[in-house]
Design a protein around this nucleic acid. Structure first.
Length: 469
RNA sequence: GGCGGCGUACCCAAGUGGUUAAGGGAGCGGACUGCAAAUCCGCGAUGCGGCGGUUCGAAUCCGCCCGCCGCCUCCA
C-alpha cells in the first residue's frame, strides 16, 4: 500500500512500526460552533482511511481529539455569560450528532485537551529543562532556533518566514517565530495551575501530548486538513521531537479543502455551510459519495447540483444489491466466478494507491453494471456478486439503504399501498388512463413506481420497496 | 515575494511515458414496457490551458507563457 507523505512530498510504501498494526491520529475540531461541510470532508476522509486499513487487515487504533479550550471558545462563553465548558460540551454533542449522521465511525479514543493538561505541563517541563523553551512572565515559548528541522514539513525557509512574517511582534519573545506552549491567565479566563503560574496551554501542545499518551512514539499516521500543515503540524513535530529525541509521526496525510465558489470554506471567511443544513437536503451517503468522488488531496468545490448527482449515482451502486434481495438463493461458500472476482483486485489496487477513491468507485460502478447485465449468470452467482459489491461499499463507509416503509410515516405508507393496489386493479382491467392517473398521484407523494412481471416496486426519496402483485 | 498545487468531453472526475484517454451525471438513439420507471446496448474528447522541446512514442518529462487556488495569521 502506498500513501502520499507530506513530509517527503512523495508516495511511499506504508510500513507500520509494528507489523499488522496502525496507530493513527488526526486533528479534530475546535468546538466553539456548529461543524461545517469542510469538517465533514476531513471526517469522512479519515473515516474511509481507517475503514480501509481495517479492510486491508490492519489492527487500527485511531485517535481524534477535541480542542475544548481556546480563545474562540472563551470569547463565545463570555458573550453568552456561561462557562467555557458549557460551550465546548454543547458543540461536542452537536459535532457527534452530525458526524454520526454522516456515517462516520467513532475513533477508538476521542481525547479532550482539558483532560490532558497534566501531560501537556509535563511535556513543556521537559522542553524547558532541555533548553528548547523559555519562560517569560508566566508564558512559555518554544524557541524555534533550537530545533533546526523546523520548517521541514511545510517546506518553509526560516529566513523567509522571518521576512514575510505577519505575526504580531511581541518584544518578550526571543524570536518572532517562537510559538506559545503555555499562556498565562488573563482575568476572566479559565486557567490551570502550573510551575509557571496559572494559565492554559497553547494550541499546538495538546496534540503532541494526546497523540503520544494514547499512541506512543512514533505514531504511524498523523492526519488533518492541509491548512494545518503550517504552523500547527510543524509545531507539533518541533515540540514532540525536541522533547523525546524520537520521530513523532512517520506518515503525514493531509486532505484538501472545500471551496465555496473560488474560495476556501472557512469560518473566518463566513462562507460556511453547516453539515446539518446539507443533511436536510441530501442523503448522508450522497454527501459521502460526493466527497469520495474527488481524490482526498485535491480541492473540492461545493455545489448543490453535485450533491444531487451523487444521490442519483448512489442508487446505481446499490441497485443490484437491493435487486438481489428478491432472490431466495443463499450465496453459499463457492468462489466468485473469475470475472466478478477481478473487481475486488481492481478496487484494492486503486485504494492501495494512496486511497484513490475516485478510481475505486469507478471499479464499483463497472461491477454494478456487470451484475445488472446478468450475462446468463446463475442466481447464486448474482447474489454472491452483489454481496461482494456490498462488502466493498461498506469498506468505504456506505450504508445499505433500508426498505422505504421502515422509514416513512405510517399514514403515508398506508396511503401509498392503497394507491398501488388500486392501480394494480386498474392495470389488470387494462384501464390505462386510470392507472396513469394513479401514478401521477403517487408522483405527487414523491413515489416512483416500477412495474415488473412480479408486481410493482416503488421508491420514495431514494428508498426502495416492493409491493408484490 | 517564498513554498505547494491545479487547468482532461456539456458538468464532475481518474489517469502522470507505450493497447481503442476509467467512471459518474446530463443529453441523444435503440431494446424492454400498455405507457413509464429501472436496467441493458450504442453515440459522444483524433485530443488532455497555449506555444516550443526531449523521445521511436507524451495528457504524462523539460522550458516559456496564460488562467486559477491554497499555505506563509486562527482555520479541517
Amino acid at each position: 500500500m502506498k500513501v502520499y507523505n507530506t513530509l517527503t512530498r512523495s508516495k511511499e510504501d506504508l510500513v507500520p512500526l509494528t507489523p499488522g498494526e496502525i496507530r493513527m491520529y488526526s486533528c479534530g475540531v475546535t468546538v466553539y460552533d456548529i461543524s461545517h461541510v469542510g469538517h465533514a470532508r476531513m471526517m469522512v476522509v479519515f473515516d474511509v482511511i481507517s475503514r480501509y486499513l481495517r479492510f486491508a487487515g490492519y489492527r487500527v487504533t485511531f485517535v481524534r481529539n477535541f480542542t475544548d479550550i481556546d480563545d474562540k471558545i472563551i470569547r463565545r462563553a463570555n458573550q453568552e455569560g456561561v462557562d467555557a465548558g458549557e460551550i465546548s460540551e454543547r458543540y461536542i454533542a452537536a459535532f457527534r450528532d452530525d458526524i454520526a449522521a454522516l456515517g462516520v465511525q467513532a475513533p477508538e479514543v476521542e481525547p479532550k485537551a482539558t483532560r490532558h493538561v497534566a501531560e501537556m505541563i509535563a511535556l513543556i517541563e521537559r522542553l524547558v529543562a532541555g533548553g528548547y523553551a523559555y519562560v517569560v512572565d508566566g508564558d512559555v515559548y518554544f524557541e524555534i532556533r533550537r530545533f533546526p528541522p523546523y520548517g521541514r514539513l511545510s517546506g518553509k525557509n526560516l529566513e523567509e518566514l522571518l521576512v514575510g512574517a505577519r505575526v504580531e511582534v511581541d518584544e518578550r519573545k526571543r524570536d518572532p517565530r517562537d510559538f506559545a506552549l503555555w499562556k498565562s491567565a488573563k482575568p476572566g479566563e479559565p486557567s490551570w495551575p502550573s510551575p509557571w503560574g496559572p494559565g492554559r496551554p497553547g494550541w499546538h501542545i495538546e496534540c503532541s501530548a494526546m497523540a503520544m499518551k494514547h499512541l506512543g512514539t512514533p505514531i504511524d499516521i498523523h492526519g488533518g486538513g492541509d491548512d494545518l500543515i503550517f504552523p500547527h503540524h510543524e509545531c507539533e513535530i518541533a515540540q514532540s521531537e525536541a522533547a523525546t529525541g524520537k520521530p513523532f509521526a512517520r506518515y503525514w496525510l493531509h486532505n484538501g479543502m472545500i471551496n465555496m465558489g473560488a474560495e476556501k470554506m472557512s469560518k473566518s471567511l463566513g462562507n460556511t455551510l453547516w453539515i446539518r443544513e446539507i443533511l436536510k437536503r441530501h442523503d448522508a451517503d450522497a454527501v459521502r459519495l460526493w466527497i469520495l468522488g474527488t481524490h482526498y488531496r485535491n480541492p473540492l468545490e461545493f455545489a448543490e447540483e453535485r450533491l444531487a448527482e451523487a444521490g442519483r449515482a448512489l442508487e446505481r451502486l446499490w441497485g443490484p444489491v437491493l435487486e438481489a434481495k428478491k432472490y431466495a438463493e443463499t450465496a453459499g461458500a463457492d468462489a466468485l466466478p473469475r470475472d466478478l472476482a477481478a473487481y475486488r483486485e481492481d478496487f484494492v489496487a486503486a485504494m492501495d494507491d494512496d486511497f484513490n477513491t475516485p478510481q475505486a468507485l469507478g471499479v464499483l460502478f463497472e461491477m454494478a453494471r456487470a451484475l445488472n447485465r446478468r450475462d446468463g449468470r446463475s442466481a447464486q452467482d448474482f447474489v454472491r456478486g452483489t454481496r461482494e459489491l456490498a462488502t466493498m461499499l461498506a469498506a468505504l463507509g456506505f450504508r445499505e439503504p433500508t426498505p422505504a416503509r421502515a422509514d416513512m410515516p405510517r399514514e403515508l405508507s398506508e396511503q401509498v399501498r392503497s394507491l398501488i393496489r388500486e392501480r394494480a386493479a386498474a392495470r389488470a382491467s387494462r384501464d390505462w388512463s386510470r392507472a396513469d392517473q394513479l401514478r401521477a398521484e403517487l408522483a405527487r407523494l414523491e413515489v416512483t413506481v416500477k412495474d415488473t412481471p412480479q408486481g410493482t416496486d416503488w421508491e420514495w426519496k431514494g428508498l426502495r420497496a416492493t409491493e408484490g402483485s
